[in-house]
């Protein structure tokens, strides 16, 4: 079922709500068969993008292709090929979870009864309870079961794990991987780094309606600094004069700093002069990458260099 090429291709997308510019020349491409992370804080434009992809909102400018079609014009036929899990799902309080799963599945074009039963079992959902009595996590499970029980090419998921307990998050990840193994594509909008780190092949980071970074996790890590902690016999000197060393904190025989990827070699050469006793280094976590784009300390010049990846 894997779709070659771009399943989602967004370029220069603009969306306004009155005077607010929600999406400002936003770009994103999602390739067939990948799990694509879509990261950004609340209000950055994630849900707006997903709703434009679903033809629920109309774009004000730019190009959007979804599964080879126009999400606004071809909404109904495209929706047969995808499943959507909304952020904070609202359901009908007097229908049961089981009824809603069947309803959404059927309207989407049918669901696999065997998978439905398996998913209900694995997500520990009681399908006989009225939706009005479900907690947020349970409502989320209803939408997830309805989505995963349909065999579709594309899954659009907006914050799907909010409200799920840690065990259920693991089950969720298992099914996302299974969907990818079956050749489906998944767009996972989230602000939970662990989910994106565990699942995503590539990711796009959005900020104030603009794409600030895109690529594989490895590429993004490469563009960011490594954290180094070093202990030595001789007092360390001269680090503050080296290019590419940031956030330096040191006393006599101990130092901790962040170093740019292309400066690591120079820094290590410098450090061997002081008889190293211990050295720890860690690649930046996704959270640190993300904070780099939202925190204050990142110089703006570097950000401009980074955003070129998105093109």
């Amino acid at each position: 079922m894997g779709t070659p090429g771009n399943v989602i291709k967004i370029s220069g997308l603009v969306k306004r709500f009155g005077k607010t510019l929600a999406l400002d020349e936003f770009n994103m491409s999602v390739q067939g068969g990948e799990v694509h992370g879509f990261l950004g804080p609340n209000g950055a434009g994630k849900s707006t993008t997903v709703r434009i992809l679903l033809g629920l909102l109309r774009r004000d400018g730019g190009e959007v292709k979804l599964l080879g079609g126009d999400p606004w014009r071809d909404a109904v036929s495209l929706h047969r090929r995808l499943a959507y899990v909304p952020d904070d799902v609202k359901l009908w309080p007097n229908l049961t979870g089981g009824e809603v799963i069947d309803l959404l599945g059927r309207l989407r074009g049918g669901l696999n009864p065997g998978r439905r039963a398996e998913l209900i079992e694995r997500f520990k959902l009681d399908p006989t309870k009225k939706c009005g009595t479900y907690s947020r996590g349970n409502r989320q499970k209803v939408a997830l079961v309805a989505a995963f029980a349909s065999d579709v090419e594309l899954y659009l998921m907006d914050e799907p794990t909010t409200g799920l307990d840690p065990l259920m998050v693991l089950t969720f990840r298992e099914y996302v991987k299974q969907a990818r193994d079956n050749g489906s594509t998944v767009l996972l909008s989230s602000h939970i780094f662990a989910d994106v780190e565990a699942l995503c092949d590539r990711l796009t980071i959005i900020r104030s309606g603009k794409c600030v970074q895109a690529g594989t996790l490895a590429e993004l890590r490469h563009l960011t600094r490594t954290k180094v902690h070093v202990e030595s016999e001789k007092p360390i000197t001269g680090l503050d004069r080296l290019q590419g060393v940031h956030a330096l904190e040191q006393n006599e025989n101990e130092a901790e700093f962040h170093v740019d990827v292309d400066a690591i070699d120079d820094v290590l050469r410098h450090l061997v002069n002081f008889k190293i006793k211990a050295l720890y280094s860690a690649p930046p976590s996704l959270e640190e990458i993300f904070m780099g784009h939202y925190g204050e300390e990142m110089p703006s010049g570097e950000q401009a260099g980074v955003s070129e990846v998105s093109k």
Partner: peptide, 23 residues
């Protein structure tokens, strides 16, 4: 305890007209 409802949707429910009628 809240009375349990049906675990599966009746055939009449899974179309938009049936849903609105039910609601």
């Amino acid at each position: 305890p809240e009375k349990p409802g049906p675990a599966r949707a009746a055939p009449g429910l899974v179309n938009p007209f049936g849903l609105v009628w039910r609601l």
